[in-house]
């Protein structure tokens, strides 16, 4: 049975697929192709692991609590009714 879409179409829409930026009917078409195509399946697996690694690579900066206190103090000076201050 001939696939509805080919490998080139998968490659073009792969990131839209992984970023959940495709309509459901298109997702179903891609999933059907990926399920029966080893090459596209491994391509999807690779890009998905790359995305996960990218997400995990964030670094925290300075202490968010201390920064939050500083921002709140500046806001109070502007008239902000800080619920945490009294």
């Amino acid at each position: 049975m001939k696939p509805m879409i080919d490998c080139d179409a998968i490659a073009r829409q792969l990131w839209d697929f992984l970023d959940h930026a495709l309509p459901p009917e298109r997702v179903a078409e891609l999933e059907a192709h990926i399920a029966m195509c080893g090459h596209c399946g491994s391509h999807v697996a690779f890009e998905r692991s790359f995305k996960e690694a990218l997400r995990a690579a964030q670094r925290e900066g300075t202490d968010a609590t201390a920064l939050g206190a500083r921002v709140r103090a500046a806001l109070r000076a502007e008239g902000f009714a800080d619920a945490r201050n009294g």
Binding site: Q58, E60, G61, T62, A64, L67, G68, V71, R72, F80, A81, D82, A83
Partner: peptide
């Protein structure tokens, strides 16, 4: 308005900081 700012804006401070 300040209560809205507290609940809708300040909660995003850690993400904005990153």
């Amino acid at each position: 308005n300040d209560a809205d700012f507290e609940s809708q804006a300040l909660c995003h401070l850690p993400e904005v900081a990153r």
